Computed example of a mutant assay.
Amino acid sequence: MEFQTNLGEALLGSASDAIVATDREGRITFWNPGAERVFGFTAEDAVGQSLDLIIPENLRARHWAGFREVMETGVSRYGHGDLLSVPGLTRDGRRISVEFTIVMLRDPAQRVAGTVAVMRDVSRRFEEIRALRRQLAQSGQAGSGS
């Protein structure tokens, strides 16, 4: 049992992936060092705040519609290993590309009590893919012009 406790603490305290938990209303209840590294907000800044903290304003309506549906149904298509790729917002206002999965938190009666998201900043990879696509498009145009 002690090994499991240490394993859990090590995973939650990791600075590699962001781990963020919320309650049913979308208020942040847990923010690990990885979330601080990815988004720039400390746990003190984030805990108790709405997820709007890291969601770009133009995407909030869509996010909250999906979040409410997940809270009502207890089902998310991103809870079984499927990754969702979305823009995120950092403390300094930069938009980053984030991939994540979520896990439902349930109360003793098995009602959905919140979520835990495991997120990774994939901005560099996203930009590399975008640059490769541009190069392919340009080389295709150059080849058709000869």
Score class of each variant (00 low, 15 high):
Glu2Trp: 07
Phe3Cys: 02
Phe3Gly: 00
Gln4Leu: 15
Asn6Tyr: 14
Gly8His: 14
Gly8Asn: 15
Glu9Asn: 14
Leu11Asp: 00
Leu11Cys: 09
Leu12Ile: 11
Ser14Trp: 01
Ala15Thr: 15
Ser16Lys: 05
Ala18Ile: 06
Ile19Pro: 01
Val20Lys: 04
Thr22Met: 06
Asp23Pro: 01
Arg24Val: 13
Glu25Lys: 15
Glu25Leu: 15
Arg27Asp: 04
Asn32Leu: 12
Asn32Ile: 05
Asn32Gly: 04
Asn32Trp: 13
Pro33Arg: 07
Pro33Ala: 09
Ala35Tyr: 02
Ala35Glu: 01
Glu36Arg: 08
Val38Ser: 07
Gly40Lys: 10
Gly40Gln: 03
Phe41Ala: 07
Thr42Ala: 11
Ala43Val: 13
Glu44Phe: 05
Asp45Gly: 05
Asp45Ser: 12
Val47Leu: 05
Gly48His: 07
Gly48Asn: 10
Gln49Glu: 15
Asp52Val: 10
Asp52Glu: 14
Ile55Gly: 01
Pro56Trp: 13
Leu59His: 11
Leu59Ile: 02
Arg60Lys: 14
Ala61Val: 15
Ala61Glu: 15
Trp64Ile: 12
Trp64Gln: 07
Trp64Ala: 03
Ala65Asp: 12
Phe67Lys: 02
Glu69Leu: 09
Glu69Val: 11
Val70Pro: 03
Val70His: 00
Val70Trp: 00
Val70Asn: 01
Met71His: 03
Met71Asn: 00
Glu72Trp: 01
Glu72Cys: 02
Glu72Ala: 15
Thr73Asn: 10
Thr73His: 00
Thr73Glu: 01
Val75Cys: 04
Ser76Cys: 02
Arg77Asp: 14
Arg77Cys: 08
Arg77Gly: 09
Tyr78Val: 09
Asp82Met: 10
Pro87Arg: 09
Gly88Pro: 02
Gly88Ser: 01
Thr90Pro: 07
Arg91His: 13
Asp92His: 06
Arg94Asp: 09
Arg95His: 11
Ile96His: 02
Ser97Glu: 12
Ser97Met: 11
Val98Pro: 00
Glu99Val: 14
Thr101Pro: 00
Thr101Ile: 10
Ile102Lys: 00
Ile102Trp: 01
Val103Phe: 00
Val103Pro: 03
Met104Asn: 00
Met104Trp: 00
Met104Thr: 07
Met104Val: 06
Arg106Asp: 03
Asp107Ile: 06
Asp107Trp: 12
Pro108Tyr: 13
Pro108Cys: 00
Pro108Ile: 14
Gln110Lys: 10
Gln110Thr: 06
Ala113Val: 03
Ala113Leu: 09
Gly114Ile: 01
Thr115Asp: 04
Val116Cys: 04
Ala117Leu: 06
Ala117Gln: 10
Ala117His: 02
Val118Pro: 01
Met119Val: 08
Arg120Phe: 02
Arg120Pro: 04
Arg124Trp: 04
Ile129Thr: 09
Ile129Asp: 07
Arg130Glu: 13
Ala131Ser: 12
Ala131Asp: 12
Gln135Pro: 01
Ala137Pro: 04
Ala137Met: 06
Ser139Pro: 08
Gly140Gln: 14
Gly140Pro: 03
Gly140Phe: 11
Gln141Lys: 06
Ser144Asn: 08
Ser146Leu: 12
Ser146Thr: 08
